[in-house]
Amino acid sequence: MATDPDLTVDRLRLRRRLVFWRIAAVASFVLALVGVGGHSLMRSGGFASRDHLVRVRVAGIIGSDNRKLIDLVDKAAKTDSVRGMILAVDSPGGSVSGGEALHDAVARFAARKPVAVTMGGLAASAGYMISVPAQRVFAVQSTLTGSIGVIMEAPDVSGLLDRVGVKVDQLVSGPMKGQPSGTQPLSPEGRQMLQGVVADLFDQFVTMVADGRHMPVERVRTLADGRPYTGRQALSLGLIDQIGDERDAKAWLTSTRHLSGTIPVVDLKVTTGQGWMHRITRSMLGVVFGDEWAGSVLSQGVALDGAVAIWKP
């Protein structure tokens, strides 16, 4: 039976469309790979040759290991084309050691070039700690910041173990070696010892704030009972310098360094070290939802040490 000419034309047209969409799909995949590769090059520490500012985002809980980011900040400080930094903080805090390491990296950068901090909804505890070396700190009126203090928690499940008939024998080399223990109640001596550790870490935190904000130590201590402050409160207390956002921070940096108002701002980011599929997935999610959200979804967790500087509402 003869083939209907219209049907033949339709089939040819459908085949052409299928070929087009297959080519488009392959091209999109290749472009995604190229885009991921480009991001990797940018995030590996390569800096533009022309003058620019760098933006460092610290969002979410601050972990203990920030070596890659610290290396990038140190490299940026030594790169002539980098004229300053915008440190964008939106964090409730986290690890004391991680916060200290980032604080010191920001301080090293600030000793060479200006740093302006912009605070988002949260810049508390260790999030405030990493902000204080900056020459200028901006926050919006509703920012929650401050919460200067240190927490160390020791869960005790010994009561539960007693109920289920489980006994744990603990052999230690000294009375303080087993303090704290999740299977034994904290002894009075252990509590005193750990309180001394917390007090010393707190003293270090207070000193960082006093040095960074050019305030007397005793003045900082009166503000450092762990409470958070709104941006408006923090301004009146001297914990920040100005109510404003990134536009204000960039304007301050360009004015301070006599730079053009059109100077570009380049994000300073760290590679995840994950495989190509992880990078492609993150790139695709980043296009749809934003890069920070994609990073949070795909992250494998945050490493924290024993003592934390974090705001816990």
Rank of each mutant, 00 (worst) to 15 (best):
R11Y: 14
L12C: 02
R17G: 08
R22Q: 14
V26M: 11
F29A: 14
R43F: 15
F47H: 12
V54D: 11
R67L: 08
K68G: 15
L72P: 01
L72K: 10
V73L: 15
D74E: 11
A77D: 11
T79N: 12
R83A: 13
L87Y: 00
S91Y: 09
G99W: 08
E100C: 02
D104C: 00
R108G: 03
R108A: 14
P114M: 11
V115N: 10
A123K: 06
G127V: 01
V132N: 00
V137A: 09
A139E: 07
V140F: 08
L144W: 07
G146P: 05
I148D: 04
V150E: 13
E153D: 11
G159L: 13
L161R: 01
V166Q: 13
V168L: 04
V172W: 09
M176W: 01
P180S: 06
S181K: 02
G182E: 09
Q184G: 03
P188K: 05
Q192L: 15
G196E: 12
V198P: 05
F202G: 10
F205G: 02
V209A: 04
V209W: 00
V209D: 04
R213I: 00
R213L: 13
M215S: 03
E218N: 09
T230F: 11
G231E: 06
Q233H: 11
L235P: 00
L237D: 09
I243P: 01
D245Q: 07
E246C: 07
K250N: 07
T254N: 02
S255L: 11
T262L: 03
P264C: 10
W276N: 06
R279Y: 01
T281M: 14
S283D: 12
M284V: 14
L285H: 00
V287S: 14
S296L: 11
S296V: 11
V297A: 14
V297I: 14
L298M: 13
S299N: 11
D305H: 12
V308N: 12
V308D: 07
K312Q: 15
P313V: 10
